[in-house]
């Protein structure tokens, strides 16, 4: 017994090192699996506060850019509104509570920490659970897709960016019914990969990629990007498509958080079906 205690005392530095290393590795491997970065994330009051302050300063220098972006978005929405046939405008003015109208709820938010140079990129936005933002809501900009909410605190939320090797989002080629999943290989911040599109699919360079309606997170038809080039995978049955993003992921600021109000219902239904 004495010897064991002596041994422990002699090697106390090494043992401290091992224990701490074990903790650090535990946190790392936790973060490598989806939805498990519960303990170490930047959605808390201190980090959120620091990023909020610094973002408020840097925002000031980009005001002109943001204004132009908003004017452009407004113009697009206006032209859509004026060009819609009267019958569908009337439908758009149905009283709230209509099932078509109320499937998705949109909250505005600001990105206060952006990241795109790592393998697993997370953003921080200034909306949290007290603004009724919760896990697994979608995040988009006026141009296209950004990511999915992963963790929330009362005032902040972390977003798993599409520039994250763990991210997997259902997407399809516009005007066809070919679905695949959108992933990222960790290389360029402006190109993501669409995999699992069948070889028989009629695709060509320049085609638009949009979100597919098969996820319970995003509405169908959120723009993602255009096809830059494509190759066949090893089995030669599926395409690997490089998609050039519409969004410039390096200069994100104003984003919209989308809540699917039917999500719980869909998940419950899926669960009961799986149990049977």
């Amino acid at each position: 017994m004495q010897q064991i205690i002596n041994f422990l005392i002699r090697n106390k530095t090494f043992i401290t090192y091992l224990v701490l290393l074990f903790i650090a590795l535990g946190l790392t491997f936790n973060a490598h699996s989806y939805h498990n970065t519960k303990f170490v994330n930047s959605a808390n009051r201190i980090t959120g506060g620091v990023y909020n302050t610094t973002d408020a300063i840097s925002d000031y220098f980009h005001l002109k850019e943001y204004n132009e972006q908003l004017v452009k978005e407004n113009r697009e929405l206006r032209s859509k509104l004026f060009n819609t046939p009267a019958s569908s405008t009337e439908r758009a003015q149905l009283p709230p509570g209509d099932s078509l109208q109320e499937r998705f709820k949109v909250y505005p938010a600001t990105v206060i920490k952006n990241s795109y140079s790592k393998e697993r990129n997370y953003l921080l936005v200034d909306r949290g659970s007290r603004d009724s933002v919760g896990q697994d809501m979608g995040v988009i900009t006026s141009q296209g897709l950004v990511g999915i909410i992963e963790n929330t605190s009362s005032g902040y939320a972390t977003v798993q960016s599409i520039l994250n090797t763990l991210s997997e989002i259902n997407a399809s080629v516009k005007n066809t019914n070919n679905f695949g999943s959108l992933r990222w290989d960790g290389n360029a911040p402006d190109v993501v990969q669409l995999v699992d599109i069948l070889r028989a699919a009629p695709i060509k360079e320049g085609d638009t990629i949009i979100t597919g309606g098969m996820s319970s997170i995003f509405p169908k038809g959120v723009p993602i990007g255009t096809i830059r080039d494509f190759t066949l995978d090893i089995s030669e049955n599926y395409y690997i498509i490089n998609v050039a993003l519409f969004n410039d992921m390096t200069t994100l600021d104003h984003v919209y958080i989308i809540e699917n109000l039917d999500r719980e219902e869909i998940l419950n239904l899926e669960n009961t079906t799986n149990e049977q």
Partner: peptide
């Protein structure tokens, strides 16, 4: 790590 949402990689490296 907490600031940059990276799990424990910086902790392990610095340690």
């Amino acid at each position: 790590d907490i600031f940059s949402d990276s799990g424990g990689v910086h902790a392990a490296a610095t340690l």
